[in-house]
Write a protein that binds this DNA or RNA. Sequence first.
DNA 1: CGGCTGCTTGATCGCTCTCAAATGGGGTGG
DNA 2: CCACCCCATTTGAGAGCGATCAAGCAGCCG
Lengths: 243, 243
Amino acid sequence: MSAGKFFITRPDYSSDDLAQYPFFRGVGERDIVEVADRARVVSHVRGEVFFNQGDAVAHQYMLLSGEVKIATISMEGEQTAMRYAGPGELFGGLLYEGLEEYPVSAVAAKNSRALRWNHSSIHKLLLAYPRLSINLISLLGREFTLIRNRFQELATERVEQRVARALSRLVDHAGKRVEKGVLIDFPVSRQDIAELTGTTLHTVSRILAKWEKMGILESGRERICICDPHGLVSLAEDLGHTG
Amino acid sequence: MSAGKFFITRPDYSSDDLAQYPFFRGVGERDIVEVADRARVVSHVRGEVFFNQGDAVAHQYMLLSGEVKIATISMEGEQTAMRYAGPGELFGGLLYEGLEEYPVSAVAAKNSRALRWNHSSIHKLLLAYPRLSINLISLLGREFTLIRNRFQELATERVEQRVARALSRLVDHAGKRVEKGVLIDFPVSRQDIAELTGTTLHTVSRILAKWEKMGILESGRERICICDPHGLVSLAEDLGHTG
DNA sequence: CGGCTGCTTGATCGCTCTCAAATGGGGTGG
DNA sequence: CCACCCCATTTGAGAGCGATCAAGCAGCCG
């Protein structure tokens, strides 16, 4: 990793690594270096926050390694998880005129490293490298599709179906092949699943217990391993027809 | 309207009208004309669709007048409303690589006119006028905040509270001052409110009947007029504390 | 080994969906 | 102008999903 083909700006990453991320798609190696040079690398261990909902918007982040939970907290104190961001994904205040506070919190779900641009830098960079803007729009489009789907599920589906879909997404997003099946490769509690699906940890616990009995998965303290991913998917689909 | 201060490209609109919309913020009059010239004006009467979920992505729209419902339909046939777009708002496939079908439908909630760019035109324009990209990102950011809030409400709040918020938003978005209070200025059925809030038209009907008795609003067939907007807002807040 | 934190499990309650049917407003065609 | 029909709306009764409350259990770290 220290033997990048191109100029390495910092010991933490090479331009090769960055070039593979969608934010830099179609951007020349030299330009990537220029853009990355305007960022700092920041690290947070599991549980630490990158920023809190309500903080003054200051930075835009791109995750290099780890996993970050993007969540909101309501006035009644209830948490809702918007998404989990993995390596290559952007998070932070989407700089639009009038936005002064982060509308969400970003907390490391495992030890994480990210590139951090400040607000004005990223603004200039987007103007200077239009391709970055296009890529950002593209990424936002995908994210939109995701939250739209989740919104629709929340509006029309039962809890069990939503949990099945949430687990499927986590597997796609951060699944690691292990002996028993596919492990979600960061600590996930029942409460986390509940915040993703708009239910309570109790209900999640009951559902997982049921599926464990059916042999679909295996789980423990903040650990979920899907033994039968296909079974999980067809469960998500079938629950619509029969229930 | 035909006496615009600047060059008028079509009888339908002047560059003045366009300059006030956020998509064109910071863009010169001449450039606005250039961009608008790449679009066609399309009209649809109430009930007609601009495009259907699943259609091949071909166009990006900016609404000039009217109101457009952006909604999805699930595999089980249930509709979910994502938002209502008013004049100046953009809708259509957010061009990202890999997107081939519209993920939502857009249907005129009243007679509507829109600018329509085709896919490749808008792509070129965004590259040629970086300020447009910035504005688009800005608009997406706002839209994101909106759907995030709605998602959180759906995940944590009761139906009554969600309906109160939905009505408040409709008032802000399309409220028209009338004698009795503020009228939502396009046809809105109980079913429409239900699709916005993830409930059924029956529940909406009961809630509106209750509020009508309380003197907060007045409603009829596809018509809702808020007599006491502030009461509605405090209802949305209070339902959290007491319920 | 002890305590903290996350997980399980039972019992109950009530919000909201579902099913069913009647009512009414408004536009259209005669 | 009137009658009719379509479709939105209202209203009732009942069932059930899932939240809530309440303990007890168990893994993991110090």
